[in-house]
Design a protein around this nucleic acid. Structure first.
Length: 456
RNA sequence: GCGCCAUUGGUGAAGUGGUUAACACGCUAGUUUGUGGCACUAGUAUGCAAGAGUUCGAUUCUCUUAUGACGCCCCA
């Protein structure tokens, strides 16, 4: 048997509906903030990621899917979304667009050559947004609040925003130097990995798991103490705007993104869900003012955010968030003989065109088994087609919930369904909630009926 | 890249170096001349991830590979 590739997943059944729903919420939110959907290729020239992400760490050298195509070109499956968006921004000369800044969002699969473990797969889906062409701290705040609002609209309750600032290049360099000086006399007492990090990526010592309780680590210099005047002002503005947008956050000096291209604002969003362990960071982002020019574009300030959809779905499941997912059909058509079957085929087509969700029997099962199938499909109504009834231009329709059966004229079937199914749909969307399902259920002081899909 | 544990029908699983691989759910059919969901009866893995080895004999022991779970490295 041919199995799926390591770290890849088939998303099927109810879970697939959850993904579809999450996608629809993302689309709706992005539309409100006026971010435009962008699709870029799944694979790009390897060089894009080498120059974009930088080859300082293991990431680009060991953890991407690289291959040569038949023409000998070096290709890499995209491991993240930003590099492709920036490439497209430059190639399509979006810096010349009348509308500035350029606000885009993406939602698609990424590929990372890693050993799978909890919350990490080789094929993963990320959505994210980028604002290119503005250094206004309001864009930093807007990106963070948009991310937070998407989580809230989905009904995620316990989320925490950690922000930090790395400052501009000068601040970053000063900080890095201070950090190296600080750790120099102590590093030999740290774990092996940290000793290596000291050489390769000293900022990451700050979130070492082994040495996290080490007093020396706890008292390490903080990025925000090394911000120069400009950087400090920018960070203060970002915090101001976040307050105005109603986003609660915590300044966490240990948030340091691994890549070189980040400067100024960096942030991570955690889902505080029981059983999520160390994989509770569901989204992260920051400002990357140097990336566009690094990829041969004009000097362009940018800020962005990305979120792993898999982890997000996992968080929704762990929090047992109720989602408005339709798992029923309007009508199941049953029959026994060939004549009735033909009519079932005809009628199902007509009703589908009229807007109803209709299914019928395809496996030659007994009537008894067909009823079971109707139950399994959660059919609101069932019809057993009967030659005699059909000759009288009639049909017996049964409400599968109340078990009441009525004989109605075929001519009014559509109106009958229209009336009775519409009501059901209204119930479903409304969920009996009077509060308007505003997505603010995690806000303090907001009262909820407790019946809608945002509550447990 | 490193480590650790696992893999038995459609599903949850029990089990053993030796004949027909428990049990339950599900599914299909019947009891019910075309109205189910209950009940009862019957059927439902020539098969224990794949390949190789040890053995008279392997689902069981050994090795290799694949996949899954969880750690480490790394984390875009």
């Amino acid at each position: 048997m041919i199995q799926k590739q390591k770290g890849c997943n088939d998303i099927i059944g109810r879970e697939a509906k959850v993904w579809k729903y999450v996608d629809s919420v993302i689309d709706a939110a992005m539309e409100k903030y006026n971010y435009n959907y962008i699709r870029t290729p799944l694979f790009e020239a390897t060089e894009l990621f080498h120059r974009g992400i930088g080859d300082t760490t293991d990431i680009v050298t060991k953890e991407t899917y690289d291959f040569e195509d038949r023409g000998g070109r070096k290709i890499t499956l995209r491991p993240e979304g930003t590099a492709g968006v920036v490439r497209s921004y430059i190639e399509n000369k979006m810096y010349g667009d009348a509308n500035q800044p350029v606000k885009v969002y993406y939602n698609g699969t990424m590929y990372r050559y890693e050993r799978p473990q909890s919350g990490r797969d080789r094929e993963l889906t990320q959505f994210g947004m980028e604002v290119l062409g503005s250094d206004d701290p309001l864009t930093d705040a807007e990106v963070i609040s948009l991310a937070v609002n998407i989580y809230k609209m989905l009904g995620l309750k316990e989320i925490k925003v950690n922000i930090n600032s790395l400052g501009d290049k000068e601040s970053r360099d000063n900080y890095r130097k201070a950090l190296l000086d600080y750790f120099k006399p102590h590093i030999k007492n740290f774990c092996e990995d940290c000793q290596e990090r000291y050489e390769k990526n000293p900022l990451r010592i700050l979130d070492c798991k082994v040495d996290s309780e080490n007093e020396i680590l706890k008292n390490a210099p903080k990025t925000i103490d090394y911000l120069n005047e400009d950087s400090k002002n920018i960070f203060d503005k970002v915090k101001d705007y976040l307050d105005i947008l109603g986003v609660s956050y915590e300044v966490n000096p240990n948030v340091v993104r691994g890549l070189d291209y980040y400067n100024h604002t960096v942030f991570e969003i955690e889902a505080k869900v029981e059983g999520f362990g160390s994989n509770n960071v569901i989204g992260a982002g920051g400002r990357y003012n140097g990336l566009v020019s690094q990829l041969d574009g004009p000097e362009t300030p940018c800020v962005g955010f990305a979120c792993g959809v898999g982890r997000l779905v996992q968080a929704l499941e762990l929090e047992q968030v109720k989602l408005p997912i339709v798992e029923n059909i309007d009508l199941f058509l049953m029959y026994v003989n060939e004549e009735e079957k033909k009519y079932a085929a005809y009628l199902s087509q007509e009703l589908r065109m009229a807007g109803f969700i209709v299914d019928t029997e395809y496996t030659g099962r007994s009537l008894k088994a067909q009823f079971k199938q109707a139950d399994r499909l959660n059919a609101k109504f069932t019809v057993v087609l009967n030659s005699e009834d059909l000759n009288n231009n009639e049909v017996k329709i049964k409400n599968n919930k109340t078990k009441e059966e009525e004989t109605i004229s075929l001519d009014v079937l559509i109106y009958y369904l229209d009336e009775n199914c519409k009501e059901d749909e209204y119930d479903l969307e409304d969920d009996g909630c009077d509060c308007g399902c505003c997505g603010n259920h995690s806000e303090e002081g907001h009262e909820c009926c407790g019946k809608c899909h945002h509550s447990n």
